[in-house]
């Protein structure tokens, strides 16, 4: 077990935003903060529309970590990028550097008053004692310490969003790709959610041109 990762399957994500809502609820995040978001590419273009759920990707060479002037970031042994809110000065540099828009700030006030940065923790809390009230209040629930995976992935209705050890996640994805196009287990996804009649035929036609 070495590396925790998220993986979002664009063939399955139906942009239900369930992961966004689940995350907000589980961690009781402050108003205005959205740790996870769903981006849709080619919205409304039949056959080309794809959605992806994005949050902190827990980078190996994390830009936020590289630019933080007070060094609040750390990576756990499982490759999760966490931060210490007590030391955060709210300068916003992580917000400039992050490619995925993960760092969020509760305020956007004059004189650069932003409050403490908040981001996805892979449901691993922060430096406070695991499961403590202080941790819940600052960073949200620590599901990893309870032997659970991030809620966004665990409750994903189409199992588009996968989380966990990289090896296991990629095994699941590989099995899925091998069977893709088949029936049965592969039924979950676009066609289940939106039907396969007219749309399916249009997709095929669009792909043929």
């Amino acid at each position: 077990m070495a590396r925790m990762k998220f993986l979002c399957d664009a063939e399955r994500c139906i942009e239900c935003n369930g992961c966004v809502t689940a995350c907000k609820n589980e961690h009781e995040v402050p108003w205005g903060i959205q740790r996870r978001r769903v981006v849709t590419i080619n919205d409304g273009v039949v056959g080309k529309e794809k959605s992806l759920s994005v949050a902190c990707m827990h980078c190996t060479d994390a830009p936020c970590m590289a630019v933080c002037p007070v060094d609040v970031f750390y990576r756990t042994e499982d490759g999760v990028v966490l931060h210490d809110k007590d030391a955060c000065i709210g300068c916003g540099y992580c917000f400039y550097a992050c490619p995925f828009g993960a760092p969020q700030f509760p305020q956007e006030g004059a004189f650069g008053q932003r409050g403490k940065m908040d981001k996805c923790t892979f449901c691993a809390g922060g430096p406070e004692a695991d499961g403590s009230d202080a941790e819940l209040e600052k960073y949200g629930r620590n599901r990893l310490a309870e032997g659970k995976l991030p809620l966004c992935a665990e409750m994903c209705s189409t199992k588009a969003l996968l989380a966990g050890d990289a090896q296991t996640v990629s095994d699941i994805f590989r099995e899925r790709v091998v069977r893709r196009g088949g029936a049965g287990a592969e039924a979950i996804g676009w066609n289940t959610a939106y039907g396969s009649g007219e749309q399916k035929r249009e997709q095929t036609r669009g792909g043929d041109k």
């Binding site: 032997g147 995976l149 966990g164 050890d165 996640v169 699941i172």
Partner: peptide, 11 residues
């Protein structure tokens, strides 16, 4: 964690 992650596949 591994067992939990494996639950994410419906195959």
């Amino acid at each position: 964690m591994r067992a939990r992650a494996r639950k994410q596949t419906e195959i």
